[in-house]
Design a protein around this nucleic acid. Structure first.
Lengths: 145, 145
DNA sequence: GTGACTAACTTTCAAATTGATAGTGTTGTT
DNA sequence: AACAACACTATCAATTTGAAAGTTAGTCAC
């Protein structure tokens, strides 16, 4: 895709897709939220080729979703930690997961629980202003300029 | 990517990424939600090569997010309409957009308003059970089996 | 009834990306 | 000294993408 055009677009979705528009990046972010930080952890979890993983980690780091940190001087070893922008991507992953659970839900699926009160998490997107679920009320789109 | 492995995975996110793991599909869905239905409308809006568009529309149709409907017998012409599964993908798009607005928000962006009361929509993902925003409380992940 | 035009594609092919496999450099462990 | 762990890099075949042109099946204007 032509990233130049898309990221300069007035659409916030298109802008996000500069890096989030491929499956590996989203799966890496998923694993990062699950606590993975190291190259080999990601590689083994995803079964991704190391060339791909190197590139994707570099992009996610450049784009500010991950941060490279040296965790050992001898030998020199790096790990990848979520930044604030990376952590704030979690709602996106949960909504993708919610859709998958509803429409691709056959067989056993991973489940997520609120660690404090033990209830299963049911992620929904709402408009914070009206409290209504996204998609239940008519939307008006306003272009800039 | 190896779709076979990923869609059989126990992760609902990975399952969704079988088709949603590329930027064009998400942009087509965005445009479909904006009301576009026809091949040439998508093509002009996205600047996508017709080869790509044909393939993506076919995949989205096979995956049950779009539905092909004949809108003219003479000449034979088809349009693509969102199915229930496609409509339910809107929250994902809104959350991707919300992230992009926050972290890639320079310049003028499209904005979305509640058509009934005129307030700007601020999409957030919450746990329907606790009402807490996703990511503000600790999560426990439970694997199947 | 010929020529221009529209819509939804398909064909072709070069360029870019991906993915599998093997190898490298630095270091700790036995 | 031999072996293993970790985080990569190198190589290269296979797949995917993207640009441009062509096709099919009709409508419309004259």
């Amino acid at each position: 895709m032509n990233d130049e055009n898309i990221s300069k677009d007035a659409c916030p979705i298109a802008r996000s897709l500069t890096f989030a528009g491929d499956a590996w990046s989203l799966l890496i972010l998923r694993d990062a939220h699950a606590g993975l930080t190291r190259f080999d952890q990601f590689r083994k979890s995803l079964g991704i080729a190391p060339t791909m993983l190197t590139r994707r980690l570099a992009t996610l780091t450049e784009e500010g979703l991950l941060e490279k940190r040296r965790y050992s001087e001898h030998p020199p070893r790096e790990e990848y930690l979520l930044t604030a922008a990376g952590r704030d991507f979690l709602p996106v992953l949960f909504m993708i997961g919610a859709w998958g659970r509803q429409y691709r839900g056959g067989g056993n699926l991973v489940r997520f629980f609120d660690a404090e009160n033990g209830t299963e998490i049911k992620a929904v997107a709402v408009d914070e202003v009206t409290g209504a679920k996204i998609g239940t009320r008519p939307i008006r789109t306003v272009m800039p300029d």
